[in-house]
Amino acid sequence: MEKTADAVRFTAVHKSFGAVRAVAGIDLEIARGETMALLGRNGAGKSTAISLLLGLDRPDSGEVRLFGGAPQEAVRAGRVGAMLQDGRPIPRATVRELVGFVASTYPRPMPVAEALALAGIEELAGRRVDRLSGGQAQRLRFAVAVAGNPELLVLDEPTAALDVEARRAFWRSMRGYAARGNTVLFSTHYLEEADENADRILVIDHGRTVADGSGERIKQAVGGTLVSFDLAGSGSQGLRALPGVTRVEIRGDRAVLRTGDSDATVVALAAAGRIRGLQVVPASLEDAFLTLTGDHGATDDDGTAHDHGTAQTLIKEPVR
């Protein structure tokens, strides 16, 4: 394994399960020491990509390399630690026993106390795993992932089912580990989390890469303002042609216009006498994400659910 190789490299990776194309051509490089977020909604292919990365699955075509070698080699060499989705710690062991065991399988582990401290669960060392709360169990899983002091840490939706406080603590732990010069890849379906905790974000949808860059760049690429108002039965004809408007969406009896020039759009709306319950808000991160991942048609169940979420954001956010 050459020293200069990227921590992770995907080259035209494809993976299907029956008729479902879970990963449909992903190219990706993660440099050593980089923290990268894999962002996508449920079913976008994040977990499949992570399984391929860890060598738990083999790609149908394309190539996955970790540190210049096959994933299994890197795993066997103890260079990888992972927190998998849906994994639960096994019962009838104590926190210290479990973390100590996992550490013992690695060639250069960190001391158990250090792993527990990093995860913020030092005081639970003697506790039986089956007597931990959900948040504590999640931190234990983090301790298990870092116990071997791996160069590459992979976290599959690590904060799912955590409350706000626990999330914050979790990301502190993750950043602490990344700050030691390690490479971290985590998946999430929250753009805010990706933006706040990663150097770089890879947005995937339907198994494909739809954006790759810093959180700032992704927001710029899809930024803009949302202008919404009541249609009051007057229909949506001509809205797309208004100045600045790049997209029109109808939610119930409300029109939501994405615009690059909200002043011009609002002036034109006023001239047309259509201002009813007007709201002007900056496009939220979630909305930017929706733009990236496309399909706003009501045909997609998932997409529709997200649209509802955005509609709520619109109502809640104050006009700035």
């Binding site: 860890l54 738990l56 103890g78 639960r88 710690p89 019962p91 399988t105």
Partner: peptide, 18 residues
């Protein structure tokens, strides 16, 4: 079987233990 249900066998596969 219990370990499998907990995803533990999968977790073991990402440790150096073969």
């Amino acid at each position: 079987a219990e370990d499998k249900g907990h995803g533990w066998l999968r977790q073991l596969r990402v440790t150096p233990l073969s």
